[in-house]
Amino acid sequence: MKHESDKLNEVKVLDSNITFEQIYKSEYFPIELEEELKKCDVLLIPTLVERNEDEHYVFPEQTMNFYDYAKGFLEKEHISADICISDKDYKEFELHSIVETIATIIVNNVAFPFTINMISSYLYEKITNRNNINKKIKVNFEVVDGKKAKKIAYEGDASSFKETMEAIKIFEE
């Protein structure tokens, strides 16, 4: 997570080996919610940060609001989404940053376009609420298609997010 960004709408597509199965085995995965979370095509996952010799699994500030928005939006598209942490372990890492970091999302390839629409709609509300057309964002995806996986990292203007993401091809044959 970063405080600032001077990136001009940069998107990176990299090979990845992260799978849903690995997430289910991670130390932050809440066993008590296993049944619900394993049905999801979209999961918000925490980031490990190290500060002052302590390690914490954290989500960016305002993730709770984003979680509500994501769940509500994607449910209307019949896509199940959730957050991969228990209530008691949920922590937000506040940078009070001008760059809005969105929680890392692991998503099935079929649900990816809906997830892009959801984030775009969320950002549109943010931009208009604060009258901030220059808002910068940072978001990472782990997109899974069967046995293949790609990591997609976007950093740049919130207003260009949708257009930039729609232009990329993830799993080219």
């Binding site: 500060r51 209530d87 890492f93 506040e94």
Partner: peptide, 18 residues
């Protein structure tokens, strides 16, 4: 930078979790 945990609602004072 700060790590924040546990919130409550300013209207009813109840705890808020995910």
């Amino acid at each position: 930078e700060a790590i924040v945990q546990n919130w409550k609602c300013s209207i009813c004072g109840n705890s808020i979790t995910l």
